[in-house]
């Protein structure tokens, strides 16, 4: 996994509550068997008009926001399906950090597995950042995971909390499976002590 240490980039406001993973990546694009290449389909129904041309009303199509790498979003971002295609699509489109008052659990978790940083900030801070990003297309933010701060060119805007284990994995680009396999002996010990009679999937009589 690519480490995430600090990111400086354009912030785009997406002022909609409960953005679900069906909006982030609609189901017709879930049939690919690769992890990459989902970017062009991210926010498909909002991003394109029926004739396939970019929808000028959608924020990421507007001047100053096309190169955004940070999304400032509203509450409960990433609700719904567990599809990891959602963070894959955002990442493939260039979004590496998402700031919001709250996230849905599975999406939040999936971001960390892909070198992306979801940051929970108070509603008022998000409102403030959203206003700035809306008023100033091309508004640049720095999301610094090492120092746990959000800053713009005038200085620090906010600080944030993040689970220390997740932070460490992101900063160092650690692979969860590799970490867990360091404890394979514990797994084997646990496995050997499991009670008899638990279900197995191999064909039943």
């Amino acid at each position: 996994m690519q480490p995430f240490t600090s990111l400086t980039g354009v912030a785009a406001p997406l002022d909609r509550a409960n953005v679900d993973t069906d909006q982030i990546i609609p189901k017709q694009f879930l049939k690919r068997i690769e992890r990459t290449g989902f970017g062009p389909f991210c926010f498909f129904d909002w991003r394109y008009l029926d004739d396939g041309t970019p929808n000028p009303d959608f924020i990421l199509n507007q001047a100053g926001y096309e190169t955004a790498s940070i999304l400032v979003a509203a509450r409960n971002f990433g609700s719904g399906s567990s599809r990891e295609h959602a963070p894959w699509a955002l990442e493939d489109m260039g979004i590496k950090a998402i700031l919001a008052p709250s996230f849905a659990d599975i999406f939040y978790n999936n971001c960390f597995k892909n070198g992306m940083l979801p940051v929970v900030l108070p509603e008022e801070t998000i409102r403030d950042l959203m206003a700035r990003a809306t008023e100033r297309p091309g508004y640049v933010l720095t999301v610094d995971l090492e120092r746990q701060v959000i800053a713009d060119q005038e200085g620090v805007v906010a600080t944030f909390d993040v689970d220390p284990f997740r932070r460490d994995c992101l900063l160092n680009g650690l692979d969860d499976i590799g970490l867990t396999l360091q404890h394979v002996d514990s797994i084997t010990t646990f496995e050997n002590a499991r009670p008899d009679g638990l279900p197995v999937t191999t064909p039943a009589a």
């Binding site: 567990s82 599809r83 990891e84 963070p87 599975i106 999936n110 597995k113 969860d176 499976i177």
Partner: peptide, 8 residues
């Protein structure tokens, strides 16, 4: 769970 966790 997500696909990375499926792999895990």
């Amino acid at each position: 769970i997500g696909t990375s966790e499926v792999e895990h």
